[in-house]
Simulated assay, not measured.
Amino acid sequence: MKKVIFSPLIFALVVLLGIVLIPNKWIEMIIPKNRVAEAATELNPFMFQGKYIQQKMLDDPRYLPVYGSSELARLDRFHPSNYFKETHAGFTPFLIGRGGTESLIHFLNFSEHTNQLKGKKLVFILSPQWFQPNGTDESHFVPNYSSLQGYDLAFNQQINPALKKKAIKRLLTFSPVKNDPILSTLYKAEITKDPWTKRKAMLATPIAKVYRSLLIKKDLYYSLAGGFQRNRELSPKVRQKTWKQLAVQADHIGARKSTNNHFFVINSQYNHIKKMVPSLRDTKEGASYGVSPEYDDFQLILDLLKNAGAEPLFISIPVNGKWYDYTGFPKEGRLSYYNRVKSQIQAEGFQVADFSSHEYDPYFMKDTIHIGWKGWVYTDRAIKNFYQKTATVNVVVRSK
């Protein structure tokens, strides 16, 4: 009887031990060759929080990484992933980000690949909503935080030490880091001269390395399993069209899909907020995106990319002007953000496609905060100019 009772448990332990002890190289050998191509539009959080797939992508010149947040999931026909596939642009956008993926999370991700960023072109889409007065919070940080990236930062010797210390001090304010006794000990040892803390870090280092190796193996298994394909609105109607023709096409689609409100918001989204709209009028009086801890978090990204020798294009998208006016959000509170973030980027010598003058363009935004049909047309042109080394990235497209 005992054999019958305990044999499943023993079998499970043997299998688990086998999974842990399989050499990483063996797992890598059976990861499908097309996994990177599949992952380009999956927006799979396991990929964001790992490193194997992104390492392969960054080593492949066919891919142009595009970093952002929830707007990346709006895969209409003008979305860069769809537009550049249909027009056979010679490169494939690789999407990295989801809702709540703000500067600090992107910094951790970039730090994972510092040695692969030299001379690498990449696109980074900024959202004004990141720059809240209190900065990113636990609800946005926790679901997007990667333990693997957190531990790798602790052992990363390639990042500028002063930059690393700044990042660690900020990371220690969030629960997944400060409540991890091993990682927080390693981090605290980086920013203190206290000998006792440094001794504790020495004792914790072997445990940290073992745990990190398990996280690396976990990432490989997730890479082997893959994610799921998203629905994409691929359309041949974008082929062989001028930018003006694409903007007109975007106008027509936006007008057809945004008929139940005067904010130029897509019907399906407006239906979700319709009952609340009257109560939201003038509720944002005195608000501003001009002052936020997010600027310091964003500076971490700028410093890392500059030190690594990366070649980024930043896309500064606007808010929906009609909606923000309705809620009473002052124009000054928006302009202060646009001007400050643009100056911050240009101070580091990086390129920025600044679309802040398009707050009131119909269908530039798809809803109250996410980039829409015409917005993607502008973005596509900026990306194409950037990729082809065209000097002008501040795009002007006139549809009327």
Results as ranks from 00 to 15, higher is better:
Pro93Ala: 01
Ile168Glu: 07
Asn260Met: 10
Tyr67Gly: 06
Val352Gly: 02
Pro312Trp: 00
Ala287Asn: 12
Ile383Gln: 06
Phe124Gly: 11
His370Val: 02
Glu71His: 11
Thr114Ile: 15
Phe350His: 03
Ala39Trp: 07
Trp243Ile: 06
Lys217Ser: 01
Ser399Ile: 06
Phe110Asn: 09
Arg334Gln: 12
Gln55Phe: 08
Asp297Ala: 07
Lys25Gly: 06
Lys257Ser: 12
Tyr378Leu: 04
Ile266Thr: 12
Tyr52His: 13
Ile273Pro: 03
Arg98Asn: 05
Thr379Asp: 01
Leu16Arg: 00
Ser343Ala: 14
Phe91Leu: 05
Glu28Gly: 08
Ile383Tyr: 09
Ala255Ile: 06
Tyr337Trp: 15
Gln388Pro: 02
Gly333Lys: 01
Met276Pro: 00
Tyr83Asp: 03
Arg334Lys: 13
Asp282Cys: 08
Lys366Leu: 10
Tyr52Gln: 08
Gly290Arg: 04
Gln346Tyr: 01
Phe78Asn: 04
Gly372Trp: 02
Gly135Phe: 07
Glu359Arg: 08
Tyr63Val: 10
Leu95Gly: 03
Asn160Ser: 11
Phe364Met: 08
Asp251Ser: 11
Glu86Ala: 11
Ala201Thr: 00
Ser316Gln: 15
Leu17Gly: 15
Gly18Ala: 08
Leu43Tyr: 10
His106Met: 07
Gln132Met: 12
Glu348Trp: 09
Ser268Ala: 13
Thr41Gln: 12
Leu304Met: 04
Asn320Gly: 04
Leu304Asp: 08
Gln249Lys: 11
Asn179Ala: 13
Lys275Trp: 05
Ala208Ser: 01
Leu9Met: 11
Ala247Ser: 15
Thr92Asp: 07
Phe355Arg: 04
Ile369Gln: 04
Gly349Leu: 04
Ala247Pro: 02
Asp137Cys: 10
Asn109Gly: 04
Ser139Tyr: 13
Ala154Pro: 01
Arg232Ala: 13
Phe78Met: 03
Arg398Val: 14
Pro278Ile: 14
Ser279Met: 11
Lys188Asp: 03
Gln245Cys: 10
Lys384Phe: 09
Ala310Thr: 06
Leu16Met: 11
Asp180Pro: 00
Leu13Ala: 15
Lys275Ala: 14
Ile207His: 00
Asn261Glu: 07
Thr192Leu: 01
Val15Gly: 05
Asn144Ala: 05
Gln269Ile: 13
